[in-house]
């Protein structure tokens, strides 16, 4: 029953860089189980990341891995996908990496609906640089650049992705790890731009400064806060305060996928050319 993660991990890389109690390791294990479930050939996977704690993940996995510049993972990933459209391209990116400096690339990748799966590790903070607030840090939370409590309103990442045109949007949490496997499987299988926001905990620079005495407290907060979307919709409005939906939040099948449309054009041009050649 114990899952053999070792087949996917690059030798000698553990223990990984993430802090004690950081939940990224939980999500990392989920991703490895997903690759195993889907029986993906490791040669055909490109895992691309930007800069930040989450973006160190590619270094640990035995795929084609690319650790790029802050916020720009999706630009690199789009290039890889357009050059090799039949390969699997996955992006891992933190909340700041994906929606602050990377925001422009995030919305355009969604708009383009190119077949890439984006895993946004949302731990509500810039962890790598020591705890500055990010576009998802809740109002009033403490951060090193909001010493009097955060006044910056936050993004709702699923709504942002849906509004920008992503054809698959889901939210999972590090606590609901088994459920997360199913979401990531579905996201990868979906043809088009899939976004999975994954709620995480950063005990070191966010949790302990915002009433979560231990990493487990924040995991239990996830358990109490996030409800399956179906159950969430049934809640009467007054009961939804402080609760959020998780699971597949939006899915639109049959939208044109960018590479398919592009290479469909290439085929049409080729046929026209062959047609003209026969006429001569």
């Amino acid at each position: 029953m114990a899952f053999n993660y070792d087949q996917y991990i690059r030798g000698g890389k553990l223990p990984h860089i993430w802090c004690p109690g950081c939940t990224y390791g939980i999500v990392f294990k989920s991703l490895l189980r997903v690759v195993d479930t889907l029986k993906l050939n490791r040669d055909d996977i490109a895992l691309v990341s930007g800069i930040g704690c989450a973006s160190r993940l590619p270094g640990y996995v035995d795929f084609n891995t690319l650790h790029t510049t802050h916020g720009r993972a999706l630009g690199f990933a789009t290039g890889i996908k357009m050059a090799k459209p039949d390969k699997h391209v996955l992006v891992v990116s933190g909340d700041g990496d994906a929606t602050a400096i990377g925001g422009n690339h995030f919305i355009h990748a969604c708009r383009r609906n190119i077949d890439i799966t984006v895993l946004v590790f949302n731990n509500y903070i810039y962890g790598m640089t020591g705890g500055q607030y990010s576009p998802t840090t809740p109002l009033g939370h403490m951060a090193t650049t909001m010493p009097y409590g955060n006044i910056d309103p936050s993004f709702n990442i699923p709504e942002l992705a849906k509004g920008a045109g992503a054809s698959f949007v889901a939210r999972g949490t590090a606590y609901h790890a088994a459920g997360l496997d199913r979401l990531i499987v579905e996201a990868i299988q979906h043809k088009g731009l899939s976004v999975v926001e994954i709620i995480n905990a950063c005990p070191t620079t966010h949790g302990r400064r915002n009433k979560f005495k231990s990493p487990t407290d924040q995991l239990l907060w996830m358990k109490d806060t996030f409800l399956p979307a179906v159950a969430f919709e049934k809640l009467p409005p007054e009961k939804t305060a402080g609760k959020l939906p998780m699971g597949v939040l939006y899915k639109k099948e049959g939208l044109p996928e960018y590479c398919e449309t592009y290479y469909g054009l290439v085929e049409r041009l080729k046929k026209q050319k062959e047609g003209r050649a026969q006429e001569r």
Binding site: A2, F3, Y5, I9, L14, P15, H16, W18, G21, C22, T23, Y24, G25, I26, F28, K29, A174, Y175, A177, A178, L219
Partner: peptide, 8 residues
């Protein structure tokens, strides 16, 4: 425990 251990 195995499911939620972040560190293998």
């Amino acid at each position: 425990c195995e499911l939620r251990c972040p560190d293998f």
